[in-house]
Simulated assay, not measured.
Amino acid sequence: MAGRDTDPERLIEDSETYLNDELTPEAIERLMDAALTDELLREFGYSDVAYLVIGNFDEPQKARLRSVRNELADRGASQFAFLLDEIGDQVWENFVVKFKIFAARVDFVVGVFEDNEGGHELELAELDRERYQQKTRVFKQDYLTVKAERSAYDAMLAHLFEIMDNRGQLYRWETEEELLELVAEHVPASRPP
């Protein structure tokens, strides 16, 4: 069954639910326009399998996120992979609301983590909620020493990595080549049953 819910009324309703407030008339107009004109939002709506790739948006980390996105999108015409800043540009003012909108609608959330930078701890903490648990795969960069590891990741991320590892949804990499191989191997190419 191809497609996912990108109906403007549902997007407005869900945005207001996550925001716990009503959207402004301007925000509603932006969302309605995007539902009609945003090419990526349309592709997302018609995709058979959709992947949200999260992590640090600073360079060079963002380049690795794009590599992961490309690896997933290259699986076929019905596969759609994206970074959150690529879709619905200028529509959602609140990043957390936008994250929840798309995390709820994708088949898989693919997290690529190299350090604490970039503010992605919020997304990883959100992914521990039951509704996201089965669809999440986390790819954590490993460091050669305990000191380097502790410098890269704080206790909150270390704890969340431990939770994901206990679920069998944490994969460790050191090079970009290893990262892409792990993504190809451990992120399903079809929707979950």
Rank of each mutant, 00 (worst) to 15 (best):
E86L: 11
D128S: 08
N94S: 09
G118M: 14
L127E: 01
L122C: 07
Q90D: 15
A77L: 09
G168T: 03
R64H: 13
V187T: 06
M164W: 06
K98E: 12
D74S: 15
D58A: 14
D142P: 00
R105E: 11
V110T: 02
E149V: 03
G168C: 13
A184I: 02
V68M: 11
R66A: 12
A103E: 01
Q169M: 14
L84K: 00
A148E: 15
G119E: 06
L182Q: 02
P188H: 07
V97N: 02
H159T: 07
L144W: 02
V183Q: 03
R129T: 04
E123V: 06
I163A: 11
E178A: 10
A125D: 15
P188Q: 10
Y153H: 04
K135T: 03
Q133N: 05
E162V: 05
V146E: 15
V112Y: 08
P188D: 13
D128C: 08
S67R: 04
R172L: 15
N166D: 15
V112K: 04
G168I: 07
E126M: 14
V109S: 06
H159F: 13
F82S: 01
D115E: 12
E93G: 12
R137M: 15
A81S: 12
N70P: 04
A81V: 04
F99L: 09
E117T: 05
G168N: 06
A77K: 00
A152D: 01
F113Q: 01
F108N: 01
K135A: 11
D107C: 09
R150A: 10
D89I: 15
V96D: 13
T145N: 09
Q90N: 13
A77E: 09
Q134L: 14
E86C: 10
E176Q: 12
E185P: 02
F80Q: 00
V110I: 08
M156H: 02
A77R: 01
A104P: 02
D115W: 01
G88I: 04
E130C: 01
E174A: 04
M156T: 09
G118K: 03
F95N: 08
E174T: 04
N94Y: 05
I163L: 14
E176R: 06
H159Y: 11
L122I: 10
L144M: 08
H120T: 14
N116P: 09
